[in-house]
Every structure is written in C-alpha cells, then in structure tokens.
Design a protein around this nucleic acid. Structure first.
Lengths: 261, 261
DNA sequence: TCAAGTTTAGACGACTTGTCAAAATATGAC
DNA sequence: GTCATATTTTGACAAGTCGTCTAAACTTGA
C-alpha cells in the first residue's frame, strides 16, 4: 500500500494538487478559462511539468470525472448495503445520488462535460477504460438490487428484463441530475423540490412495476426517506474518507502506480 | 411574410447555409474541428463575413440547438394534438422524442452540447432567451396533457403537482436521450431496444400514478404504439416542412428580421 | 565531489479566435 | 452611363492557447 517511494508519493501528491486546482478553476470560471498554463501557475510549476501528468486539458477533466464517479460509486455501495427491503435499497441509491448532487454540484457537471465529444475523444485510452468500468460498476449496483428483488419475489416476473428496468432508473436519475445541473429556473416552473419530486416519481414507477410496496403509510413517507438518508450519509463520515484515484503513470517507462481503491 | 427585401433574403439564405455547413462539420468531425475559418472556406466566403452572422463559434452551435428544439417542438405539437386519450397523447409525445432521436441523432447531441458552460456562457442574449422560451414551450406541452388528464379524471388527484409529474417525465425522457446519445454499448449491457424499454417504463410510471389505463391488452401494446407512431409521423410529411429559425440581425443597425415561425 | 540519470522550465511553432481598416461592391441621383 | 455615397467583404493582424522539445537544474549514489 505504502510501497511507493518518496518520489512516487511526491508525484502522486502533485498530481492530485493539479487536479484540485483544475477542479477549482473549472467550478469558478468554467471550462474555457481552464488552461494548462493557468494550472501550472497556480501550482507554482511550469507548463511542461503539468504536461507530464496530463496529455491535454481534456485529460484533466476526464480524470476529475473519474474521481467523481468513484465517489459516487462509493455512495452507491453504501446504498445497496442498506439494511432494509430491496425497495428501500433502491430508494437509498437514489437518495445517494441526490446527496451527491447537492454536495458536489460541480462534480456532477464534470461528469456531464466528460461526454462532450471534445473531451471524450481526446482523453487517454486508460481513462476511457476506467470510465467505462465505473459506469458499468454503477450499472451493476442497480442491477443487483433489481435482481435481488426479482429473486425474492418483491418484483413479479414480467416481460421486462432487469436490464431494461435498470435503464429506466438510470434514465430517470441521469435526466434529473442533468436538468438540475443546468441552470433552468425550476422554481419558476413550479418545481420547488426537484429531488423530492423524483423520489415520488420513482415510488410511482416502482408501484407501477408491481414492486412490493414498503410498509410505511404515505403520510410518513418523507420521514421514511429522511431516515434512510440519515442512516446512510451522516455528515461526519462523508467526503474525506473517499480517496481520489491514483495518478496516471508518468512518461512511459514508469510502472502504473498501484490502485488506491 | 415575404416582406423581406432581396438583400435580406440573401442574407437569411447565407445564414442558413453557414448553419448547415456547421452542422455537417459538427456531425462529421466534432466540435473541436469546427472553426470559423473552416465554415467560411466551405461556404466560399471569408471569415469576416461569417463573423457578421455569428459572434463566435459557440453562437453557431447555440443556433443549431435552437433550430433543433424548434423541430422537436413541432413534433411535440403533433403529439399533443393526437386524437386519442390523454394517455395516448403522452405516449405520442414520448414517441415523438424517440423519432427525433433516431432521425436527428446529431441534433440531439447539439442540444446537449448547448448546456456545456463553454457554449451557454458565450451565446448571445437573444439566443439564450429563445432557448428558454422553447424549453418552456416544450415543458408546457407536456404540462397541458397532464392538466387535461387531471381535469378529465384520467388521473386521480394526489399530493403530486402537475409540474412535479412533468419534471419526472422530462427527466425520464431527457436521461434516456442523453444516455442514448453517448456511446455506451447499451447492447452489451443487455439493453437491446432502449426506446422500447423507456416506453415500458413510462407505461409503468403512468400505472403507478393511477393514470387511467388504455384499453389495449398488453399483447397488442407494441402494435398500439406503432399505430400512434404511424399516425403521427408518416414518413413523407416530416422534416422538409419544418422551417429553420430566421437569422439573427446583422450588426446592430439592422432591425431584427421577422420570425418565420 | 562528480558523473549519470531524471525532472523541470519556458522558448517555440502551429493554430484559432475575433478585430479592423482597406478594398470591393452595390445603390441611386443625375 | 457616371459618379458619389453607403454597404459589404476581405484577409492581415494581434492576442492567446496548445503541445513539443531542448537546455538547464536538480537528484542520486559511488
């Protein structure tokens, strides 16, 4: 784990420092204000050094995206391990996403930026692979809940495959996240609590699929959700413990550093 | 309607020509290959002339986005005018989006690109306003269906507002469109027909909301959807009739050209 | 202390953006 | 048809960014 040399640790630290600066710049001034020169300046290194860590600025964004997805994956993991019915586990997963949206609005934006052809097409092969893996990992988190529900009879067998259902949940969640991260004046449109609205839609969708209802009368539904939220994401244990991804190998002759996950 | 001078018509035509070239470039080579010089070259004009039509390349993308949304709005209009139950009208709306997704994949991408801060922040005020208006227009299309359904008793009164429901539909639709427009290998994930999957999810969601079911037994549901699709979007009457937005005013001393919608 | 290896700095070429003044063109009065 | 005026188009230019590459600075260990 700490089998890294002092030098390697220094490099890894710098790598994360660059990423952190990039994230700040991105959040505060947007993508087109982010330049390698700027990052270098703020980090008090030169451009050449930054380029040893990232082939291009798109690669930086790509890695920020991966970091974000890793954190999201961690939250998802907590959710699916929630001690409750499968329905509650799925609710927990959505709650996790809601929490993430609120805690890390900028990271959600980064994750969406990644899909822009300008970025995805310039990112390194390994970053693209990691992204796919994480995507798949999150997909499987939800799929496992659905399959558990099917297996245990919470969800009647139907013509709809687990995958198609997951795609539906994914769409609902992804769409809500995307819309919320844009600057639409949802309030003005009459949508005062988008997060809560999505939870209701999800509940309805589950009902419509014949998913076994939870025992809570609808009056206490909000409290119920709050309970799950509290159980999963109590304030103190949140972001600090989540490790960023290890840096990319520098140059070509250095071995890929060991994963810190 | 044709109260435009010859000159004005020429300018409008050129404007659309530029946009058309930009759209091709964008589709074929991506955003970072799109440059004003390139557009100018292909159109056999000089860069300066292109800059008289668009302040920057982001403005071009913004206008492409608006054009796309106008076409989508037209399709939506057909959908909500479908002669059938309110449930069918809502299905028709989703079908319209599915058709659009398939017919104009690149336009869907443009619409998503628009949200990227790099673009939305550089676009002209008037383009931004048009975008908001169109967004709101589409939102209201769906809202009108929901309100009609509530009024006519197809949808039981509940704690959920029409707006929140629309937000749910919007999310589901938007998310599906976004995911499909990225290059995830959905097939490999076991999602062979994302469009169909979303329709099933939508039906389930409507069921869960207590929306009055349609009379068709589930065996013929696919045929039912196909019927709606055919009725609305018969091939011959589709894209040609949809007018692009009129060009932006050139310089500042020219009056805004009359809307062609 | 010094030589070999490694890392960093920043000058540089290539490219794009957006501007602007001069050249080309259109208009319309006579 | 001609010429003065107004408009439009052009492309050179300044500014800025990207990504490269070599020389300088630094590290390491004998």
């Amino acid at each position: 784990m700490t089998g890294l040399s002092r030098k390697q640790r220094e490099i890894a630290e710098r790598h994360n420092h660059f990423l952190s600066i990039a994230r700040d710049l991105l959040r505060d001034e947007g993508f087109h204000q982010l330049s390698m020169e700027r990052v270098a300046e703020l980090a008090e290194y030169s451009k050449g050094t930054v380029y040893q860590h990232f082939n291009c600025k798109e690669e930086m964004v790509g890695q920020l995206c991966i970091n974000a997805m890793q954190r999201l994956h961690c939250l998802g993991q907590r959710a699916i391990q929630y001690q409750g019915s499968h329905r509650e586990r799925l609710l927990a997963f959505f709650i996790a996403n809601d929490v993430f949206q609120q805690m890390e609005e900028d990271a959600v934006c980064n994750m969406q930026s990644y899909q822009h052809d300008q970025i995805i097409n310039k990112v390194s092969e390994s970053t693209r692979m990691r992204h796919s893996e994480l995507m798949y990992g999150i997909f499987c988190q939800v799929k496992s809940i659905v399959e558990d529900a099917m297996r245990d009879g919470d969800l009647p067998s139907s013509h709809t495959s687990a995958e198609d259902m997951v795609f539906g949940f994914w769409s609902l969640n992804h769409g809500a996240q995307a819309i919320r991260s844009h600057q639409y004046p949802l309030e003005e449109l009459g949508i005062s609590e988008p997060g809560a609205a999505i939870m209701i839609m999800l509940q309805s969708l589950l009902d419509g699929l014949g998913w076994k209802p939870d025992k809570h009368p609808s009056v206490t539904k909000n409290e119920h959700l709050q309970t799950i939220r509290d159980a999963l994401f109590s304030q103190q244990s949140l972001p600090s413990e989540i490790k960023p991804i290890p840096p990319m190998p520098i140059n070509t002759h250095q071995p890929q550093l060991e994963s810190a996950v």
